[in-house]
Amino acid sequence: MSKPLISVRGLTKKFDDFTAVDGINFDVAKGESFGLLGPNGAGKSTTMRILSATSTRTSGTVEILDKDPEKFGPLVRAHLGVVPQQDNLDGELTVSENLFIYGRYFGLSKKFINGKIEELLEFAQLEEKRDVKVEALSGGMKRRLTIARGLVSEPDILLLDEPTTGLDPQARHILWDRLFRLKEQGVTLVLTTHFMDEAEQLCDRLVVMDKGAIMAEGSPQGLIKEYSSKEVLEVRFGSDRNKQVAPQLAQMCERMETLPDRLLMYTEDGEKLLERIAAANLHPTTSLVRRSSLEDVFLRLTGRTLIE
């Protein structure tokens, strides 16, 4: 295996008494799509700020393209595209002006940037908005523009912090499609998300983070296989009855999680389990058999759900 593009060892970041990131390790290989999955406050954004060679770390080592980002900030940043959680576009300028000015920050020639703008407007599906002030764009459009802006310098690594948070389902799917194209082109992607479907869609490999630490690492399918069963049966008996029947149901499956509104039963065969529940004369008001997801992995690892 060739040398990783990003190598993180024992990375720790403290703000006064609060430890935001607590001794994490991971590598990202060239062309890989790597995810940091975890709830809000897990330390994902702090990690991303350090990877983007802007924020300092408290301890540990970080190497990006063989260089310490703290010592060679501008040099490392020249190879990164950064898409922050909050779109920090210049609202007073137009779509194309935003791209142009950003390209200039990389010292790129006017000629190169102008050519690049055409390509990026097409990629972001914003050709018709070229001369529109950014303030007037929808949330999804701003997001796509922020991603396009991050690509103006043809970066080796694109860092995306919560790329689809706050977008409606349609806008999210458009964005996923765009990111998938980048992945196909061989761009190395590092993204954070608290959406398990996003992690499953976009990541080749991911780490599950909680409270500043890494709980598990692997491919989405690998993690599901390791930490969950093949299927999940979700049953609801009504909020009071859920607790009453829980002990009896727990005997019938490999593992069970009791959530406020429903019970999650982990099993290899959901339909068969449901039949056994009926045979025991327990009748849930609703039931659903689904395959295990990263949400279940997170629940298993932390005892909590991703979105609380």
Binding site: S52, T54, G73, P74, L75, R77, A78, L80, V82, P84, Q86, N88, L89, D90, G91, Y102, Y105, F106, G107, R149, S153
Partner: peptide, 12 residues
């Protein structure tokens, strides 16, 4: 608008 953070994400 956090424009400085956007600028600082480049070699600037």
């Amino acid at each position: 608008r956090k424009l400085f953070f956007a600028q600082n994400a480049t070699p600037i």
